[in-house]
């Protein structure tokens, strides 16, 4: 695999995860449990959308076929998306979204710390910017884990249920293949292997403080690196891409 192809795929993976996560979070708009959370979740959605825009724009430049970030977001099919599966899972209840946010933000804080040192200047720039935003996402998720976990019997059980359900989607975030290997040699990509124990330590500490038990299951779901998704991604794309599919090249 040559470096250009590897970087293009790598950027799609990062960009797609941000895009799909943004879409899921935006589903909370006007449905938040309280007004402040409605604002918080949509603000986080906006951060993700901005990140997706920057990464997909750069992916288009690297690909060199004059595709814009909009072309990449709206004109690829399900099998051409490479977002981590955890980002496409349904919104669920509030505890489910918070558990998802905790797992993702804890991972991203480590990932973008590494990527901000990338030898690819554009990627490093986007990563440094993203890191500042992810820090707030992590604090937001952590604080809600404490409130839900130490709240009532019901809020604790809802968070516990969410953590148990989502656990098997956390392993995939750390998967690496030849794309990563090609870019690691050049100092462009992040080595995810050493990040996993750090992530585990951080997440374990937060869940313990929130009176939540760590799931025991070791089975981990996989597929997104090869474009294999859960049934949910197709439904997201159906909604997200509707306008560009129905009215190609529409602008406003």
């Amino acid at each position: 695999m040559n470096q250009q192809n590897a970087l293009y795929t790598y950027l799609l993976r990062l960009g797609d995860s941000a895009l799909i996560q943004s879409h899921r979070l935006s589903e909370w708009c006007s449905r938040g449990p309280i007004l402040e959370e409605d604002l918080a979740l949509t603000n986080i959605a906006l951060d993700n959308l901005g990140r997706a825009q920057a990464l997909l724009r750069y992916a288009g430049e690297v690909e060199g076929k004059k595709r814009t970030e909009d072309d990449l977001a709206y004109k690829r099919g399900e099998r051409q998306f490479y977002n981590n599966l955890i980002t496409e899972l349904p919104t669920g209840d509030f505890a489910y979204t918070i558990a998802k946010q905790l797992f993702i933000a804890a991972f991203e804080s480590l990932l973008f710390t590494e990527l901000s040192k990338s030898k690819d200047d554009t990627l490093a720039g986007i990563a440094a910017k993203t890191l500042k935003e992810v820090k707030y996402h992590l604090v937001h998720a952590r604080d809600w884990c404490y409130r839900l976990g130490r709240g009532t019997v019901i809020s604790n059980s809802k968070l516990q249920h969410a953590v148990d359900e989502l656990w098997m989607y956390t392993g995939e975030m750390f998967e690496m293949d030849e794309v990563d290997a090609t870019l690691l040699k050049e100092g462009i990509a992040a080595d995810l292997a050493p990040l996993k124990p750090k992530w585990m330590e951080h997440v374990t500490a937060i869940l313990k403080d929130a009176d939540i038990l760590l799931p025991a299951g070791e089975f981990m779901q996989t597929g997104s690196r090869a474009g294999i998704h859960t049934e949910h991604l197709g439904h997201i794309l159906t909604e997200m891409q509707y306008l560009q599919r129905a009215y190609p090249e529409a602008i406003w």
């Binding site: 402040e36 959370e37 604002l39 918080a40 603000n43 986080i44 906006l46 951060d47 935003e133 707030y136 604090v139 937001h140 604080d143």
Partner: peptide, 9 residues
Amino acid sequence: LISQFGSTA
């Protein structure tokens, strides 16, 4: 603090 995220990001 009321909320980590206010009227704008």
